[in-house]
């Protein structure tokens, strides 16, 4: 644990760890600051710009993103000045035109008082991400920085930039783990489990084999994920080829029959 410091958000004093993201402190304490690209397991990235706050006392005064703002003792910020609301409204409008099909984005914008956009909707014909992507980069960063897989990345530059697999060709490194789907704040990434295959629809229909549960016969995990997980867990004597539902049942059964639980833990 680092040193504890006191920071002031909208006049209220909170305790924080020195250097931690101010956005994290705010969210933890129930202060709602909109954000799309922030995720606890990743380094602050500062791309969505929605979490802007105004620093009134600190290293550098003025408007900055709270996710990348490190807490120092005496830091004072405001989250809802007219200036911030003005800029945030424009940013939301830009997003609404960029990703016109995302319901989640619309809800977030509405929550902060933005119901429509003055900009023309972007032409997103044949967009693998369904006109929902806001380019927050969470999927790319999870795939590359957390999992070390690197199946997807940014393609192109500027307003033409998008996220996908290289050359929009089926990926041979994607493990079908769905971390990208889970982390996406706007539900832009499509996938589907069909029979013994998982199809990552948005990633040029990349197909990954699924593995069957040895008890009930249901397909439940992508084979490449199972491979790396089971290798680690087998060292602890854990049997892995069982789906989560059956595992629950087996644990329950063991507990009732032997009075304790020692297998499938």
């Amino acid at each position: 644990m680092g040193r504890r410091v006191k920071v002031t958000i909208d006049g209220k004093v909170f305790s924080a760890e020195e250097g931690e993201s101010l956005l994290a402190v705010a969210l933890r304490n129930g202060i709602d600051i909109p954000h799309l690209c922030y995720e606890e397991c990743l380094e602050p990235y500062g791309s969505c710009r929605l979490c802007i706050v105004e620093v009134v006392e600190g290293f550098k005064k003025g408007i900055t993103t709270s996710c990348t703002l490190g807490c120092v003792d005496g830091l004072k910020v405001l989250t809802n000045t007219p200036e911030i609301e003005k800029h945030r409204k424009v940013l939301f409008e830009l997003y609404l035109a960029q990703a016109p099909n995302s319901e989640k984005l619309k809800k977030l914008a509405e929550k902060f008082g933005v119901y429509s956009t003055r900009f023309k909707e972007k032409n997103l014909k044949n967009d693998p991400l369904n006109g929902k992507c806001v380019m927050c980069g969470l999927c790319v960063r999870v795939c590359n920085d957390v999992l070390g897989v690197g199946a997807i990345n940014f393609i192109g530059r500027g307003y033409r930039a998008t996220v996908n697999v290289p050359y929009f060709e089926e990926s041979d490194v994607c493990k079908g783990c769905k971390a990208c789907v889970e982390v996406c704040p706007v539900d832009a990434i499509d996938y589907s489990d069909v029979g013994d295959k998982r199809v990552m629809i948005s990633w040029s229909n990349t197909k990954v084999d699924l593995i069957k549960c040895s008890v009930c016969g249901r397909y439940f995990s992508p084979l490449p994920v199972f491979g790396s997980v089971s290798k680690k867990l087998s060292e602890y004597g854990v049997v892995c080829d069982v789906c989560p539902d059956c595992r629950k049942r087996l644990i329950a059964k063991n507990m009732t029959s032997s009075g304790g639980y020692n297998s499938y833990a």
Binding site: Y95, A97, M135, G158
Partner: peptide, 16 residues
């Protein structure tokens, strides 16, 4: 043309 596309004001705002 030269915007990298990372943050929304530069990526979308400039284009608008």
């Amino acid at each position: 043309d030269e915007s990298c596309g990372k943050c929304v004001p530069c990526r979308e705002g400039l284009k608008r």
